[in-house]
C-alpha cells in the first residue's frame, strides 16, 4: 500500500479512469469510461437521468464495484480486492443527494464522529477543527442542532463539513442540490464554490448548468454509459458538437 502511495506524484492525474465498465445484471450502465483529473481541478459530469453519472462517482469511492477497466485514485487501485478501504476513504470525501446525516447526532457530533472513531484522533483537536468547518460552511450557532431541526440546505452543508473533517484530497458531490428547495440551493453552491476556489479537487454530478459553467474547469457529458463530449465550459456550452449534447442542452438551458 505504501508503495503505490509513493508512486503517485502531483504532476500525474489525481484520479484516473481507464475503460471503466459496469452493469446491473444485464443492464449496462458504464460502457468504457476513461477520464483523467488533475489535482485542484473541478470537473462537472452532466447528462440525462439514467446515463450513469451517479454510478460513475460512486465507483470512484468504491461504493459500487466495477466489472472492467481500472480506477486509480492517487495511485491507489480502487477496485483491487486487497485495497485498504480506509486509505481510500481518507483521500476521498463524498456528499450525497439526501445528505445522509446521522439523525441521532448533533451537527457538531456528525462532523466529529469519523475523525474520532475512525482515525482515532484526539477529540479536543477534532472539535476545534469541526467548529472551524461549521463556521466555514456558514452554520455557526447550529453546532448543537440535530439534523431533523435543520433545513435541507443546512443539512447538506453539515454533510459537506462532515466530509471535509476527514481532510480529503478529493471531494465527490452526487447531485447534492437535487433534493433541496430552490431557495436553499444557492447556499450550498456557494459553499462548494468556496472549496473549489481553495484548490480542492472536486468531482460534481449536477443538474445546475449555470453553476457548472461558472465553477468547472472541465465538463463531461455522459449518455448511455459513455462520455459523449467533454471540454472546458466556455466552448462546451457555446459550441456543442455532438447532436445528443445539443439536444440535451436545448432541453435543460
Amino acid at each position: 500500500m505504501a508503495m503505490t502511495d509513493v508512486k503517485w506524484t502531483a504532476d500525474q492525474p489525481i484520479v484516473s479512469l481507464k475503460d471503466v465498465r459496469k452493469s446491473y445484471g444485464s443492464v449496462p450502465v458504464l460502457n468504457g469510461i476513461s477520464l483523467d483529473i488533475m489535482k485542484g481541478e473541478v470537473i462537472c459530469i452532466i447528462g440525462p437521468s439514467g446515463s450513469g453519472k451517479s454510478t460513475l462517482i460512486r465507483c470512484i469511492n468504491a461504493l459500487n464495484d466495477i466489472q472492467g477497466g481500472s480506477i486509480l485514485v492517487e495511485g491507489l487501485e480502487v477496485h483491487d480486492p486487497k485495497l485498504d478501504k480506509l486509505a481510500l476513504r481518507k483521500k476521498v470525501g463524498m456528499v450525497f443527494q439526501q445528505y445522509n446525516l446521522f439523525p441521532h447526532k448533533t451537527a457538531l457530533q456528525n462532523v466529529m464522529m469519523a475523525p474520532v472513531k475512525v482515525l482515532k484522533e484526539n477529540p479536543a483537536e477534532v472539535e476545534k477543527r469541526a467548529r472551524e468547518l461549521i463556521r466555514k460552511v456558514r452554520l455557526e450557532g447550529k453546532e448543537n442542532s440535530y439534523p431533523g431541526e435543520l433545513s435541507g440546505g443546512q443539512q447538506q452543508r453539515v454533510a459537506i463539513a462532515r466530509s471535509l473533517a476527514m481532510r480529503p484530497d478529493i471531494m465527490l458531490f452526487d447531485e447534492v442540490t437535487a433534493a433541496l428547495d430552490p431557495e436553499t440551493v444557492k447556499e450550498v453552491l456557494v459553499t462548494i464554490k468556496d472549496l473549489a476556489a481553495e484548490g480542492m479537487t472536486c468531482i460534481l454530478v449536477t443538474h445546475e448548468m449555470g453553476f457548472a459553467r461558472e465553477v468547472a474547469d472541465h465538463i463531461y457529458f455522459t449518455d448511455k454509459g459513455v462520455i459523449v463530449e467533454h471540454g472546458p465550459p466556455a466552448g462546451f456550452f457555446a459550441n456543442p458538437t455532438d447532436p445528443r449534447t445539443r439536444q440535451f442542452l436545448s432541453q435543460v438551458l
Binding site: M94, F96, L101
Partner: peptide, 10 residues
C-alpha cells in the same frame, strides 16, 4: 443510504 454515508467516511 445512511449506512453508505458511514461507509464512505471510512
Amino acid at each position: 443510504s445512511t449506512l453508505e454515508a458511514s461507509e464512505s467516511l471510512g
